[in-house]
């Protein structure tokens, strides 16, 4: 359990710095099992900040989401740093953004938070219904949730995000300030879900995806929330040339989803935000996980773990596998 006082104190120190202009963290949401991302600009706002297992959103997304409209003549851009809270998975997103040179290391001040898992609101709502918890904390192997004065203990796998149940990086990989002590690694990833899916025949796989892709309403929330999707103009909404049409049907939806996951090949750091935000419950991570596994298997590459690495698809090794090439 992270001490909220320590968290706010450290946040206050960071946002009070002369060279920091904004700080991205979390605050209480207005309802439900999820906190809200918070962007604060003044030390007085630091008392709103919180951290607990409801803080699911990836603050790294908001570093690249910030828009920079053209400034009036004579106005200098504010180039001061951005403070950002980061759980283990969030820190991988920050690293990957830097690997791609989205910004320099000294553009951000990272406040690392060791994390023991965050809530999956879908699982929680199934268990507890449409309610707002008073308190959520992880103690040992259990998750304690207090609703209306009544405390309940549930198993981790019943309410935590799937990514947390296979988390290999509970501690932030980079941080300038650390809140709370580091936690011990508590899970591992064997990609058994990918293996399981791969047992299907091509026809069965398509039968599955046909249903899922036809649900998509193309709100692009999966794209926008992704910390790795920060192109100024996305190829799926470009009109000239128009690779993907705007009409929403199976053909264009398939094209969109393949493009989206393809563009994350060797870049996805598995924060699972895309799947969390999807209003149509499309299992988007099933595509991303396949690529993550293959990238690891074929190229021994793991995105977002090394600031010095070069991006997977802009580098090569003459000995790369040629599995299906004639």
């Amino acid at each position: 359990m992270v001490d909220q006082g320590e968290l706010r104190q450290k946040a206050k120190e960071v946002i009070s710095r002369e060279d920091v202009r904004r700080l991205i963290g979390w605050k209480r949401g207005t309802y439900g099992f999820e906190a809200a991302p918070a962007v604060i600009k003044d030390p007085s706002e630091a008392d709103e900040l919180v951290f607990d297992p409801t803080c699911v959103q990836n603050p790294a997304s908001f570093v690249t989401l910030e828009e920079k409209p053209p400034l009036p003549r004579g106005v200098e851009p504010d180039l001061r740093k951005v403070g950002v809270f980061a759980k283990g998975c969030d820190s991988r997103a920050l690293i990957q953004q830097m690997v791609e040179q989205a910004y320099e290391r000294d553009h951000i001040v990272v406040i690392g938070i060791p994390c023991r898992g965050v809530i999956d609101h879908r699982k929680a709502e199934k268990l507890f219904g449409d309610v707002t918890p008073d308190l959520v904390e992880i103690s040992g192997d259990k998750v304690v949730i207090e609703i209306g004065g009544e405390k309940r203990e549930v198993a981790r796998e019943d309410v935590l995000m799937a990514k947390c149940l296979r988390c290999r990086y509970p501690n932030p990989l980079i941080s300038d300030v650390l809140v709370g002590g580091e936690v011990e690694k508590f899970a591992d990833d064997d990609f058994s879900d990918v293996d399981e899916f791969e047992k299907k025949s091509p026809a069965e796989k398509w039968e599955f995806w046909e249903k899922e892709f036809s649900k998509c309403i193309r709100c692009y929330s999966c794209r926008n929330v992704c910390p790795m999707c920060y192109c100024p103009e996305c190829v799926v909404t470009r009109l000239k040339p128009q690779w993907t049409r705007r009409s929403v049907d199976l053909s264009e939806n398939t094209s969109y989803h393949i493009e989206r996951s393809w563009h994350l090949a060797g870049r996805c750091i598995e924060c699972m935000e895309c799947e969390r935000v999807c209003p149509m419950d499309i299992p988007i991570m099933t595509l991303n996980r396949k690529l993550t596994r293959d990238v690891k298997e074929l190229f021994s590459y793991e995105p977002g773990t090394d600031v010095e690495a070069s991006p997977l698809l802009t580098s090569y090794n003459p000995q790369d596998p040629e599995e299906y090439i004639m």
Binding site: A36, P37, A38, V39, S61, F62, L65, I217, R218, C219, Y220, S221, R223, N224, V225, V277, P279
Partner: peptide, 13 residues
């Protein structure tokens, strides 16, 4: 707007 993703959920739904 600082935390808005700019997606279409609120309007499409």
């Amino acid at each position: 707007s600082d935390r808005c993703l700019g997606c279409g959920i609120c309007t499409y739904l």
